[in-house]
Protein backbone atom coordinates (compact mmCIF):
# COMPACT_ATOMS: atom_id res chain seq x y z
CA UNK A 1 0.00 0.00 0.00
CA UNK A 2 2.03 2.92 -1.19
CA UNK A 3 1.40 6.49 -2.08
CA UNK A 4 0.88 5.22 -5.57
CA UNK A 5 -2.08 2.98 -4.83
CA UNK A 6 -3.89 5.73 -2.91
CA UNK A 7 -3.53 8.18 -5.74
CA UNK A 8 -4.72 5.56 -8.22
CA UNK A 9 -7.84 4.97 -6.13
CA UNK A 10 -8.44 8.71 -5.90
CA UNK A 11 -8.02 9.05 -9.61
CA UNK A 12 -10.45 6.25 -10.39
CA UNK A 13 -13.06 7.56 -7.97
CA UNK A 14 -12.80 11.07 -9.40
CA UNK A 15 -13.11 9.83 -12.96
CA UNK A 16 -16.11 7.69 -12.08
CA UNK A 17 -17.75 10.59 -10.31
CA UNK A 18 -17.30 13.01 -13.21
CA UNK A 19 -18.32 10.46 -15.82
CA UNK A 20 -21.52 9.99 -13.84
CA UNK A 21 -22.10 13.74 -13.43
CA UNK A 22 -21.39 14.43 -17.10
CA UNK A 23 -23.77 11.65 -18.05
CA UNK A 24 -26.63 13.18 -16.05
CA UNK A 25 -25.94 16.67 -17.31
CA UNK A 26 -25.68 15.61 -20.94
CA UNK A 27 -28.57 13.18 -20.82
CA UNK A 28 -31.21 15.70 -22.01
CA UNK A 29 -29.14 16.13 -25.19
CA UNK A 30 -29.44 12.42 -25.87
CA UNK A 31 -33.19 12.68 -25.30
CA UNK A 32 -33.33 15.69 -27.60
CA UNK A 33 -31.44 13.95 -30.33
CA UNK A 34 -33.21 10.62 -30.18
CA UNK A 35 -36.74 11.95 -29.84
CA UNK A 36 -36.45 13.84 -33.11
CA UNK A 37 -36.15 10.46 -34.84
CA UNK A 38 -39.23 8.95 -33.27
CA UNK A 39 -42.55 8.94 -35.08
CA UNK A 40 -44.74 11.76 -33.75
CA UNK A 41 -47.56 9.29 -33.18
CA UNK A 42 -45.38 7.21 -30.87
CA UNK A 43 -44.34 10.26 -28.87
CA UNK A 44 -47.94 11.28 -28.52
CA UNK A 45 -49.26 7.93 -27.35
CA UNK A 46 -46.28 6.56 -25.42
CA UNK A 47 -44.85 9.75 -24.06
CA UNK A 48 -41.21 10.52 -24.07
CA UNK A 49 -39.19 7.57 -22.94
CA UNK A 50 -35.63 6.82 -23.78
CA UNK A 51 -36.16 3.39 -25.20
CA UNK A 52 -34.70 3.22 -28.62
CA UNK A 53 -36.29 0.65 -30.88
CA UNK A 54 -34.05 0.95 -33.89
CA UNK A 55 -36.66 -0.29 -36.35
CA UNK A 56 -39.16 2.45 -35.49
CA UNK A 57 -36.68 5.28 -35.85
CA UNK A 58 -37.56 7.51 -38.74
CA UNK A 59 -36.47 10.73 -40.33
CA UNK A 60 -40.05 11.73 -41.13
CA UNK A 61 -39.92 14.56 -38.59
CA UNK A 62 -36.94 16.07 -40.33
CA UNK A 63 -38.50 15.60 -43.74
CA UNK A 64 -41.62 17.29 -42.46
CA UNK A 65 -39.55 20.15 -41.03
CA UNK A 66 -37.68 20.70 -44.26
CA UNK A 67 -40.71 20.47 -46.52
CA UNK A 68 -43.46 22.05 -44.41
CA UNK A 69 -41.41 24.14 -42.05
CA UNK A 70 -41.29 27.36 -44.06
CA UNK A 71 -42.02 29.47 -40.99
CA UNK A 72 -39.33 27.63 -39.03
CA UNK A 73 -36.64 28.55 -41.54
CA UNK A 74 -37.95 32.10 -41.60
CA UNK A 75 -37.37 32.22 -37.81
CA UNK A 76 -33.95 30.70 -38.31
CA UNK A 77 -33.10 33.40 -40.84
CA UNK A 78 -34.39 36.14 -38.50
CA UNK A 79 -32.35 34.76 -35.61
CA UNK A 80 -29.18 34.64 -37.70
CA UNK A 81 -29.57 38.21 -38.97
CA UNK A 82 -30.41 39.60 -35.53
CA UNK A 83 -27.57 37.69 -33.89
CA UNK A 84 -25.01 38.85 -36.45
CA UNK A 85 -26.01 42.52 -36.33
CA UNK A 86 -26.33 42.60 -32.55
CA UNK A 87 -23.00 40.86 -32.05
CA UNK A 88 -20.93 42.92 -34.49
CA UNK A 89 -22.63 46.20 -33.61
CA UNK A 90 -22.56 45.83 -29.86
CA UNK A 91 -19.00 44.58 -29.70
CA UNK A 92 -17.65 47.41 -31.85
CA UNK A 93 -19.69 50.23 -30.35
CA UNK A 94 -19.13 49.02 -26.79
CA UNK A 95 -15.42 48.65 -27.45
CA UNK A 96 -15.36 52.35 -28.45
CA UNK A 97 -16.78 53.32 -25.09
CA UNK A 98 -14.61 50.94 -23.08
CA UNK A 99 -11.52 52.10 -24.97
CA UNK A 100 -12.31 55.77 -24.38
CA UNK A 101 -12.81 55.16 -20.65
CA UNK A 102 -9.49 53.35 -20.40
CA UNK A 103 -7.21 55.42 -22.63
CA UNK A 104 -8.25 59.05 -22.34
CA UNK A 105 -8.20 61.29 -19.33
CA UNK A 106 -11.12 63.69 -19.46
CA UNK A 107 -13.52 65.44 -17.18
CA UNK A 108 -16.39 63.22 -16.11
CA UNK A 109 -14.60 59.99 -16.92
CA UNK A 110 -15.18 58.46 -13.50
CA UNK A 111 -18.76 59.63 -13.58
CA UNK A 112 -19.38 57.88 -16.91
CA UNK A 113 -17.66 54.74 -15.73
CA UNK A 114 -19.82 54.82 -12.61
CA UNK A 115 -22.82 55.11 -14.89
CA UNK A 116 -21.76 52.01 -16.80
CA UNK A 117 -21.49 50.09 -13.54
CA UNK A 118 -24.89 51.38 -12.51
CA UNK A 119 -26.40 50.17 -15.79
CA UNK A 120 -25.00 46.72 -15.11
CA UNK A 121 -27.32 46.62 -12.12
CA UNK A 122 -30.56 47.30 -13.96
CA UNK A 123 -31.81 44.34 -15.98
CA UNK A 124 -33.50 45.37 -19.23
CA UNK A 125 -36.53 43.24 -18.29
CA UNK A 126 -37.53 45.85 -15.72
CA UNK A 127 -37.79 48.53 -18.39
CA UNK A 128 -39.73 46.44 -20.90
CA UNK A 129 -42.97 48.43 -20.69
CA UNK A 130 -41.55 51.95 -21.27
CA UNK A 131 -39.13 50.50 -23.84
CA UNK A 132 -42.09 49.06 -25.68
CA UNK A 133 -43.68 52.53 -25.66
CA UNK A 134 -40.46 54.00 -27.07
CA UNK A 135 -40.54 51.40 -29.83
CA UNK A 136 -44.15 52.24 -30.68
CA UNK A 137 -43.18 55.90 -30.83
CA UNK A 138 -40.20 55.18 -33.10
CA UNK A 139 -42.28 52.85 -35.28
CA UNK A 140 -39.92 49.96 -34.58
CA UNK A 141 -42.37 47.40 -33.22
CA UNK A 142 -42.09 44.11 -35.13
CA UNK A 143 -38.78 45.07 -36.79
CA UNK A 144 -35.21 43.82 -36.50
CA UNK A 145 -34.12 47.26 -35.32
CA UNK A 146 -36.62 47.11 -32.49
CA UNK A 147 -35.01 43.93 -31.16
CA UNK A 148 -31.44 45.06 -31.77
CA UNK A 149 -31.19 48.73 -30.80
CA UNK A 150 -31.61 48.50 -27.00
CA UNK A 151 -28.72 46.01 -26.94
CA UNK A 152 -26.47 47.71 -29.48
CA UNK A 153 -24.30 49.15 -26.72
CA UNK A 154 -23.96 46.81 -23.77
CA UNK A 155 -22.69 47.94 -20.35
CA UNK A 156 -21.16 44.55 -19.65
CA UNK A 157 -19.14 44.68 -22.87
CA UNK A 158 -18.04 48.26 -22.18
CA UNK A 159 -16.86 47.15 -18.77
CA UNK A 160 -14.95 44.24 -20.26
CA UNK A 161 -13.18 46.38 -22.86
CA UNK A 162 -12.39 49.06 -20.33
CA UNK A 163 -10.70 46.49 -18.08
CA UNK A 164 -8.87 45.02 -21.04
CA UNK A 165 -7.68 48.28 -22.60
CA UNK A 166 -6.43 49.67 -19.31
CA UNK A 167 -3.71 47.03 -19.36
CA UNK A 168 -2.46 47.97 -22.84
CA UNK A 169 0.75 50.00 -23.33
CA UNK A 170 -0.25 53.61 -23.94
CA UNK A 171 3.22 54.65 -25.14
CA UNK A 172 2.51 53.09 -28.51
CA UNK A 173 -0.33 55.56 -29.03
CA UNK A 174 1.95 58.47 -28.18
CA UNK A 175 4.47 57.52 -30.81
CA UNK A 176 1.77 56.81 -33.38
CA UNK A 177 0.41 60.31 -32.79
CA UNK A 178 3.82 61.77 -33.54
CA UNK A 179 3.81 59.82 -36.77
CA UNK A 180 0.59 61.60 -37.66
CA UNK A 181 -1.99 59.01 -36.72
CA UNK A 182 -5.50 60.31 -36.05
CA UNK A 183 -7.21 59.40 -32.80
CA UNK A 184 -9.53 57.01 -34.59
CA UNK A 185 -6.59 55.63 -36.53
CA UNK A 186 -4.84 54.86 -33.25
CA UNK A 187 -7.87 52.87 -32.17
CA UNK A 188 -8.52 51.08 -35.45
CA UNK A 189 -4.99 50.34 -36.58
CA UNK A 190 -3.03 49.95 -33.38
CA UNK A 191 -5.18 49.30 -30.35
CA UNK A 192 -8.03 47.25 -31.83
CA UNK A 193 -5.66 44.55 -33.13
CA UNK A 194 -4.19 44.33 -29.65
CA UNK A 195 -7.67 43.80 -28.23
CA UNK A 196 -8.47 40.84 -30.49
CA UNK A 197 -8.82 38.36 -27.60
CA UNK A 198 -11.35 40.70 -26.00
CA UNK A 199 -13.24 40.94 -29.29
CA UNK A 200 -13.25 37.15 -29.48
CA UNK A 201 -14.55 36.60 -25.96
CA UNK A 202 -17.20 39.27 -26.21
CA UNK A 203 -18.40 38.23 -29.68
CA UNK A 204 -19.10 34.77 -28.42
CA UNK A 205 -20.88 35.91 -25.28
CA UNK A 206 -22.97 38.42 -27.23
CA UNK A 207 -23.81 35.94 -29.97
CA UNK A 208 -24.95 33.42 -27.39
CA UNK A 209 -27.05 36.00 -25.52
CA UNK A 210 -28.62 37.27 -28.69
CA UNK A 211 -29.33 33.80 -30.09
CA UNK A 212 -31.09 32.81 -26.86
CA UNK A 213 -32.65 36.18 -25.99
CA UNK A 214 -36.29 35.73 -25.12
CA UNK A 215 -38.31 38.29 -23.18
CA UNK A 216 -37.57 41.41 -25.21
CA UNK A 217 -38.07 39.82 -28.66
CA UNK A 218 -41.27 38.24 -27.30
CA UNK A 219 -42.57 41.73 -26.60
CA UNK A 220 -41.34 43.56 -29.67
CA UNK A 221 -41.94 40.95 -32.36
CA UNK A 222 -45.67 40.66 -32.91
CA UNK A 223 -46.08 38.81 -36.20
CA UNK A 224 -45.24 35.22 -37.02
CA UNK A 225 -42.86 36.10 -39.87
CA UNK A 226 -40.68 38.34 -37.75
CA UNK A 227 -40.21 35.93 -34.82
CA UNK A 228 -36.82 34.63 -33.76
CA UNK A 229 -36.23 30.94 -33.04
CA UNK A 230 -36.90 30.89 -29.28
CA UNK A 231 -40.10 32.91 -29.73
CA UNK A 232 -41.25 30.81 -32.67
CA UNK A 233 -40.48 27.53 -30.88
CA UNK A 234 -42.29 28.75 -27.77
CA UNK A 235 -45.32 29.51 -29.95
CA UNK A 236 -45.34 25.85 -31.03
CA UNK A 237 -45.60 24.59 -27.47
CA UNK A 238 -49.15 23.50 -26.85
CA UNK A 239 -50.77 21.20 -24.32
CA UNK A 240 -52.18 19.02 -27.11
CA UNK A 241 -48.80 18.00 -28.45
CA UNK A 242 -49.88 18.40 -32.04
CA UNK A 243 -46.62 20.12 -32.99
CA UNK A 244 -44.25 17.59 -31.47
CA UNK A 245 -42.45 16.67 -34.67
CA UNK A 246 -41.54 20.20 -35.61
CA UNK A 247 -40.86 21.29 -32.03
CA UNK A 248 -38.36 18.50 -31.38
CA UNK A 249 -36.45 18.60 -34.64
CA UNK A 250 -36.59 22.40 -34.69
CA UNK A 251 -35.18 22.63 -31.16
CA UNK A 252 -32.39 20.22 -31.99
CA UNK A 253 -31.33 22.22 -35.03
CA UNK A 254 -31.25 25.36 -32.87
CA UNK A 255 -28.66 23.89 -30.56
CA UNK A 256 -26.29 22.62 -33.22
CA UNK A 257 -24.75 25.90 -34.50
CA UNK A 258 -24.00 27.21 -31.02
CA UNK A 259 -22.53 23.84 -30.06
CA UNK A 260 -20.20 23.98 -33.05
CA UNK A 261 -19.11 27.52 -32.21
CA UNK A 262 -18.46 26.41 -28.65
CA UNK A 263 -16.29 23.47 -29.67
CA UNK A 264 -14.10 25.75 -31.78
CA UNK A 265 -13.82 28.72 -29.43
CA UNK A 266 -14.01 27.10 -26.01
CA UNK A 267 -11.40 29.19 -24.27
CA UNK A 268 -13.07 32.42 -25.35
CA UNK A 269 -16.27 31.29 -23.67
CA UNK A 270 -14.46 30.69 -20.45
CA UNK A 271 -12.52 33.96 -20.45
CA UNK A 272 -15.67 35.81 -21.46
CA UNK A 273 -17.74 34.66 -18.55
CA UNK A 274 -15.10 34.67 -15.87
CA UNK A 275 -14.27 38.32 -16.31
CA UNK A 276 -17.87 39.16 -15.39
CA UNK A 277 -17.10 39.87 -11.81
CA UNK A 278 -14.42 37.64 -10.46
CA UNK A 279 -11.48 39.84 -9.94
CA UNK A 280 -8.33 37.80 -9.79
Amino acid sequence: MGQNTTSKIKKTLLILFFVFTSFIVLFPFYVMFISGFKPASELFSNGLNVSMALDTLTIENYIYLFTEGKEYFRWYFNSIIITIITTIGSVILSSFAGYALAIYKFKGRNLIFGLVIFLLLVPVDILMLPLYKVMIFLGLVDTYSGVILPFIVTPFVIFFFRQYAIGLPKEIIESARIDGCTEFGCYARIMAPMMLPAFGAMSIIQAMNSWNNFLWPLIVLRSNESMTLPIGLASLISPYGNNYGMLLTGSTLTVIPILIVFLFFQRYFVSGITVGGVKG
Partner: peptide, 29 residues
Protein backbone atom coordinates in the same frame (compact mmCIF):
# COMPACT_ATOMS: atom_id res chain seq x y z
CA UNK B 1 -5.52 13.49 -9.54
CA UNK B 2 -8.17 14.16 -12.20
CA UNK B 3 -7.27 13.70 -15.87
CA UNK B 4 -9.40 15.01 -18.78
CA UNK B 5 -10.23 18.16 -16.82
CA UNK B 6 -11.16 20.16 -19.90
CA UNK B 7 -13.49 17.48 -21.14
CA UNK B 8 -15.45 17.34 -17.89
CA UNK B 9 -15.47 21.11 -17.60
CA UNK B 10 -16.96 21.38 -21.10
CA UNK B 11 -19.51 18.67 -20.39
CA UNK B 12 -20.79 20.60 -17.37
CA UNK B 13 -20.79 23.87 -19.28
CA UNK B 14 -22.57 22.78 -22.46
CA UNK B 15 -26.17 22.99 -21.11
CA UNK B 16 -25.74 26.73 -20.60
CA UNK B 17 -25.47 27.13 -24.38
CA UNK B 18 -29.05 25.99 -24.80
CA UNK B 19 -31.83 28.52 -24.53
CA UNK B 20 -34.30 28.14 -21.68
CA UNK B 21 -37.03 27.48 -24.23
CA UNK B 22 -35.24 24.59 -25.94
CA UNK B 23 -34.14 23.14 -22.61
CA UNK B 24 -37.66 23.56 -21.28
CA UNK B 25 -39.19 21.74 -24.23
CA UNK B 26 -37.17 18.64 -23.40
CA UNK B 27 -37.62 18.96 -19.65
CA UNK B 28 -41.34 19.26 -20.25
CA UNK B 29 -41.29 16.05 -22.26
Amino acid sequence: YLPFKNFFKSALFIPSLVSVIVGGVFFGL
